[in-house]
Amino acid sequence: MKGQEWYQADDIAEEYEEKRFSRGGRLIDRREKQAVLDAIGPVEDTDVLEIACGTGRFTVMLAERGADVVGLDISGPMLKQGRQKAQAAGVSDHLELMRGDAGRLPFPDDHFDAVIAMRFFHLADTPASFLSEMRRVSREVVFFDTFNRFSTRSIYNWALPMGSRLYSRWEVNRLLDDVGLQLVNGEHDFVLPYGFYRQIPNSTASTFRKIDTTLGSLPFGDRLASVSYWACEV
């Protein structure tokens, strides 16, 4: 896993959300959460697993909406932040956070209604093995995102501290075929990369977002998208 030591550092965990989801990053947070909700459908009384759950952005959100959620992550400091967030939100009874390896999920086959992974596959050295495990433990939905190879993401990829794996659509389709997942919906968004939005105020980000969505709506505009959300069924 690329950047494993960087990701597990105490100071990274403490500053993770403040650096990525304040300022213009709030817009990204809203878009990602809506993508997760759209993929899962009705959330209440649903059993959900999030791998690489980090500080619990999605696990807490889903628990607040009535899902029973398990979040798994390799980083103890990230999980600590997630537990504090769950307690503050009053959803600890609907949420379990545990440390573990996403490549060897400690659950039986068909254990969850949905399995999700956000901000994970750009770090994965062996994406097929992780995706195969996600499929194994899901009864219905598998949802994940990728950063795209032929996009503005590649311009600043070299500056990321942990590196970043970029995917072509052909590569994602091949991965889905290899593990036996059926693609239900693929959404492609953010012509301007995430890193750009994080550097500007939230009010300014809204203006650029309008330009971004206009570009994305043009013929072949989605081919310029820097991120894709993949909703699949088992």
Rank of each mutant, 00 (worst) to 15 (best):
S168Q: 05
S226L: 03
T204F: 02
D178A: 11
S132P: 01
N185M: 00
M61L: 15
L218I: 10
M61D: 06
D11N: 04
K33A: 03
E14A: 12
D11A: 01
F143G: 03
K80Y: 11
L105N: 12
F150Q: 04
R149T: 05
F220N: 13
R223C: 10
I200R: 09
P108H: 11
Q182T: 11
R223K: 13
Q199A: 07
F220R: 12
D109M: 08
T59F: 09
F120V: 00
P77G: 06
W6Y: 11
E96N: 13
E140K: 07
V179I: 08
E171F: 02
I74W: 12
A13W: 09
R57A: 15
A225C: 08
E32T: 10
A124H: 06
V60M: 13
D177I: 06
E64T: 02
D45K: 09
D11W: 03
L175C: 09
S92C: 13
D177Y: 05
F147S: 02
E18C: 09
D45E: 12
R23T: 15
F112D: 01
F120E: 00
L176D: 08
R99F: 05
S151P: 05
L123T: 04
V142R: 05
G103F: 14
M162H: 14
P201H: 11
A35G: 05
Q182V: 07
M1Q: 10
L175H: 11
G103C: 08
V137I: 01
E17G: 06
L131N: 08
L131D: 11
P127C: 12
G82R: 12
S206E: 03
L27E: 14
R135K: 07
A102E: 12
R23E: 15
G82S: 09
